[in-house]
């Protein structure tokens, strides 16, 4: 079966500096895949490439088998690629309801708006309670729920979450992750970026470890959890070739 998302030899950066050297990864339908890595490893850049906010210098982005590297960001939302961005980026002066409404701006999503509202409010009852409140006045956890809810309003087939646990307390992280897991049960594919390794490997099926713009390791959650390489990638040590081949064998 063709994977829903496949990155092939992606190379990209900003200005002079290269951020992703040569990144290949894939995601099958219904899978939860996490992208781990230290600060500056290129995790957010990967989500920006997939969502179309950044054009790759080289390489292919295949979505359901088709190369979408030249499709602009707003068209990718119509295709079903929705992103809950790093730092949440909800509109602070908009109410919760208006933020969600904007999430369903694309033509396809507009037709299913009422249904999606029910779904999002069902998933995050807190948002339903606060639907008239300004997003900027809510707590970090609630804003994160809103950012995920807003991405869901676009009726995604592939949902990307960039650091959903950033700046949240441990209890809220669990709430958010339970919601993510229950979203995945509906058949969505989820690619999410995380620094919080323990939390991420709890819900992910598979994971990739990014270090210095390369995929340093990949494997199932169980494999990654027991890998010494994951530790090293987070401490910033450059993994040796021998380590790499070990993980690939595993």
């Amino acid at each position: 079966m063709t994977p829903i998302l496949e990155l092939i030899n992606i190379r990209v950066g900003y200005g002079q500096s290269v951020v992703l050297q040569d990144v290949s990864l894939n995601l099958r339908e219904g899978e939860i895949v996490c992208l781990l890595g230290a600060n500056g490893a290129g995790k957010t850049t990967t989500t920006r490439v997939v969502s179309g906010l950044l054009a790759p210098w080289a390489g292919e982005i295949r979505y359901a088998g088709e190369n979408i590297a030249t499709v602009p960001a707003h068209k990718r939302v119509e295709l079903g690629i929705c992103l809950s961005p790093e730092g949440r980026q909800v509109f602070p002066n908009f109410s919760v309801y208006e933020n969600l409404l904007l999430g369903s701006f694309s033509k396809k999503a507009r037709l299913r708006r009422t249904e999606m509202f029910d779904e999002v409010y069902g998933l995050f009852p807190r948002l339903a309670e606060r639907r008239k409140q300004k997003a900027g006045l809510m707590s970090g956890g609630e804003q994160q729920m809103l950012a995920i809810g807003r991405a869901l309003m676009g009726c995604p087939k592939l949902l990307m979450l960039d650091e959903p646990s950033l700046g949240l307390g441990p209890k809220i992280i669990i709430d958010v992750y339970e919601a993510v897991a229950s979203i995945a049960k509906r058949g969505l594919s989820i690619l999410f970026v995380e620094q919080n390794v323990q939390a991420a490997l709890m819900i992910a099926h598979r994971g990739y470890v990014l270090a210095n713009g390369h995929i340093a390791a990949e494997g199932t959650s169980a494999e990654l959890r027991s890998s010494p390489l994951v530790q090293e990638a987070f401490l910033g040590k450059k993994p040796s070739r021998q380590d790499l081949s070990e993980v690939h064998r595993a």
Binding site: S51, L53, A73, H74, V77, E78, C82, L83, P85, Q89, V90, F91, P92, N93, F94, L102, G103, F105, S106, A109, R150, G154
Partner: peptide, 15 residues
């Protein structure tokens, strides 16, 4: 309004 508040975020939502 979304463009005024945050054009990048607006783009992510398909605008």
């Amino acid at each position: 309004r979304a463009m005024r508040a945050n054009e990048g975020a607006a783009q992510m939502l398909g605008i």
